[in-house]
Design a protein around this nucleic acid. Structure first.
Lengths: 130, 130
DNA sequence: ATGATATTGATATAACATTATCAAATACAA
DNA sequence: TTGTATTTGATAATGTTATATCAATATCAT
């Protein structure tokens, strides 16, 4: 018999964290989530952010975006395959549409391709404008 | 007037660390360097590995390959633009040849592209064989 | 060979991001 | 409304990677 998950309670913190991710339109880091979610949950603590992000990832609702040399960002799961852009000026991560073909041509003989990650660096529209 | 760099001395450890990177044929992590370089420098310590890797990177001789969720690997600089492959089974990183075009098509309006990183995941030839 | 100083090895410490702890607050079924 | 288990916030502790410390050792110009 399956171990039942503990009853998930509906708290202001949890709602606010989820809302922060929904409204951001781009992947957020844990501290960014904290900042944004405080609007709907004053006094929100970083531990609660991590706890809920972890739970959301475990539930498959949210995906952790791993970045080289950067703390992971979090975005809602279920989107089409896509990649990300890291702004060198503001350190924000943006979602890009689409992908590139021809990946298999890069593989040496005998190597099997599972997945791939692409990260573009540069300056975002907002930072480029200045 | 320029501050002169301290006279770099030629030690067995430094030679061996450099040789390990040269002979590996793929980017190595600090612990991999330690393991490989012990051949030519018995008793080699991890601190010396980090010290020398840092110095080599600062001198522009070596490049740190940053990977999402992984400790950086180190490879000699000056190679043509290329990307890497991380084997999910043995955790080794391999160098790939070539690149992909069409990156700019992925950019939103107003974004400026600086550089990019591509990492392929899968199993290497050696691990696929098993 | 000698001496000044760079380098090393062992290990303590730092720097982060994340997780554990635990008393207090909260949700929610009854 | 009450009781109980979940959740929270503050913060201590952890894990991991890298750096600082420092006495001992090795390099290399003289």
């Amino acid at each position: 018999m399956a171990m039942n998950a503990p009853a998930a309670r509906d708290t202001a913190q949890r709602r606010s964290i989820r809302a922060a991710l929904e409204e951001a339109g781009r992947p957020l880091g844990a501290l960014e989530v904290l900042g944004a979610a405080k609007a709907g949950a004053p006094g929100l603590g970083i531990a609660t952010v991590y706890r809920n992000l972890k739970a959301l990832v475990a539930a498959g609702e949210v995906t952790a975006v791993e970045l080289p040399g950067e703390a992971p960002r979090y975005e809602f799961a279920g989107k089409e395959h896509h990649h990300h852009f890291l702004c060198a000026a503001c350190d924000k991560v943006y979602e890009l549409g689409g992908c590139l073909g021809g990946l298999k041509e890069l593989l040496p003989r005998g190597f099997k391709l599972g997945s791939h990650e692409l990260l573009l660096h540069g300056t975002c529209a907002s930072c480029s404008r200045r």
